[in-house]
């Protein structure tokens, strides 16, 4: 049984001017215990929305989301709140995700105050210190405030907060995008270690393909709210089947000057998510596009075992 399952989930937002923003369009995704599913795509692709839907911080307009076998829509308020001890999140901007008026001890301890009330003060403190040690922060950090910490340290506090209740699933929403290069590697390694130690499942959302690829067992590529390709990380990375994936990968710049990027570029810019193209979302920008592509939205189909792609030309 999968840990997290999204089935045909859609989400729209109403803009002030009356237009509708189609953030997520008919997405299905599963995440198993202990595995990392990477979710990549550019801004506006709907990746963060998927993360929030999985955590039930937003409710879908269509589709079913289950966690540990339970349909999240059917949970009572209390049960839903209790479930939050088992599925947590690490946000992109570390400073903004920490309450500037709480110190580190209070921030990391808050989930325990909410979910494990019977814990005494010293027991709770012990758990907090334990969590901090797991993210390589010592006891001296307990009394410090977020503004006194560096970006990397702040993100570690966010991670500590996410693991203190021993969850089974963590949504990582661009966890390293705001961090310096040298700190990114530290945090990625930390996340990997934590995953092994606690058997965590991750949904790793990012626009940086290289960071995602490192931790992921499977990779999903999103464009305009749709998953256009999904499969084993290595396969998607070395043999991308969807033109958008190919473009995305070739747009990434390697730090090795000897590696020249392939020039597979798409025309134009991403259309607005309020005005979705008919048929395949990529047509109009895609070098492979033909009339066939405009007729109807293209569903995912199996190309090779476990590797699915939504393209008529793949």
């Amino acid at each position: 049984m999968s840990l997290v399952k999204l089935e045909h989930v859609s989400k729209t937002f109403k803009r002030d001017k009356g237009s509708t923003l189609y953030a997520v369009n008919d997405v299905s995704l599963t995440i198993d215990r202990g595995e990392t599913v990477g979710l990549i795509g550019e801004s506006g692709a709907g990746k963060s929305t998927i993360g929030r839907l999985a955590l039930r911080l937003q409710t879908p307009d269509a589709g079913v989301i289950t966690f540990e076998g339970q349909d999240l829509a059917e949970l009572s308020k209390q049960s839903l709140s209790a479930v939050r001890a088992r599925m947590t999140v690490v946000f992109q901007e570390p400073y903004q995700s920490l309450n500037p008026r709480m110190n580190v001890g209070e921030i990391v301890g808050e989930p325990l105050v909410i979910h494990e009330r019977r814990l005494g003060r010293s027991e709770r403190r012990q758990r907090v210190v334990d969590a901090l040690e797991h993210v390589a922060l010592g006891q001296t950090f307990l009394d410090r405030y977020p503004a006194e910490l560096s970006g990397g340290q702040q993100q570690r506090v966010g991670i500590a907060r996410a693991i203190v209740t021993r969850p089974s699933f963590v949504v990582l929403d661009e966890p390293t995008s705001s961090l310096d290069l040298s700190v990114r590697a530290q945090v990625l390694q930390l996340l990997g270690d934590l995953q092994k130690e606690f058997d965590l499942a991750y949904l790793f959302i990012s626009h940086d393909i290289h960071s995602v690829e490192h931790l992921s067992s499977r990779l999903a590529v999103m464009y305009l709210g749709q998953i256009v390709e999904i499969g084993p990380a290595a396969a998607v990375f070395t043999d991308p089947l969807h033109p958008y994936t190919q473009a995305l990968l070739s747009a990434a710049l390697s730090a090795d000057p000897d590696v020249k990027p392939a020039r597979f570029l798409l025309r134009g810019e991403i259309p607005s998510p309020t005005n979705l193209p008919r048929g395949c979302f990529l047509h109009g920008r895609c070098p492979l596009g033909t009339d066939e592509c405009t007729r109807a939205p293209v569903p995912l189909h199996h190309a090779v075992a476990a590797h699915e792609v939504a393209c008529l030309k793949a």
């Binding site: 560096s150 990397g152 290069l181 040298s182 700190v183 990114r184 590697a185 530290q186 990625l188 390694q189 940086d208 290289h210 960071s211 690829e213 490192h214 990375f237 390697s254 730090a255 090795d256």
Partner: peptide, 15 residues
């Protein structure tokens, strides 16, 4: 420190 495929991450400690 730049994550690259097929290469283990090298960590730079300290700050």
């Amino acid at each position: 420190a730049v994550p690259q495929p097929n290469k283990p991450l090298q960590i730079l400690r300290g700050s």
